[in-house]
């Protein structure tokens, strides 16, 4: 739960399952997310704006998985953040997964299927085209509440694209 009643922005739910190379649920994973607020500002000293901070939004969430591999977060849709001087990145959420049997954690991003900027995102374009869909959540709406479903597949043909950070800034 990343939101409080005072938090600014559009409420969304992120929900998904962590599954292993056999398609079996991973019941002992820890999922962490990190995101900008609704205005596109990270709660971090390196992000000096000009978009405003939201005192009611930290941008960090942590969820253990259930027996069926499921995790969830209640948050707000992040705003776009900068890529370089002239370009923005599409709204996205950084996702990290830790688990027994994972000697290093894995890092990836969740993108929004209904955001027009997603297909232009410079980072998403570094992912081989046939694997990009693994980073784009699916949208579900029920009773006015929007859920983005994002499964993390640790291994196999449908494996989620995971990132390795280059050693220098963009």
């Amino acid at each position: 739960m990343l939101v409080q009643p005072e938090t600014k922005g559009t409420r969304i739910r992120i929900e998904g399952r962590v599954v292993d190379g056999d398609g079996a649920p991973v019941p002992d994973a820890l999922v962490e997310i990190w995101q900008a607020n609704a205005a596109g500002r990270y709660n971090h000293p390196l992000d000096e704006g000009p978009s405003p901070l939201d005192p009611f939004f930290l941008g960090f969430g942590r969820s253990g998985t259930e027996d069926d591999g499921r995790y969830w977060f209640e948050t707000v849709k992040p705003g776009a953040v900068r890529f370089d001087k002239n370009r923005l990145q599409a709204p996205h959420i950084s996702v990290t997964v830790f688990a027994r049997g994972m000697l290093n954690h894995v890092a990836t991003r969740l993108y929004f299927p209904d955001d027009p900027e997603t297909e232009h995102d410079p980072i998403l374009h570094l992912v081989p085209e046939e694997r990009r869909k693994t980073l784009i959540a699916s949208r579900e709406e029920a009773g006015g509440a929007v859920t983005y479903r994002f499964d993390v597949v640790l291994r196999g043909a449908l494996e989620t694209a995971f990132f390795q950070a280059a050693s220098a800034p963009a």
Partner: peptide, 25 residues
Amino acid sequence: RRAPSLPLVEVPLTISELTGPGPAI
């Protein structure tokens, strides 16, 4: 069963990677 088998995607460091929850939490 849990190790990625496909190549990791090397990405440049944007503000999303250069920040993180550490200072705030």
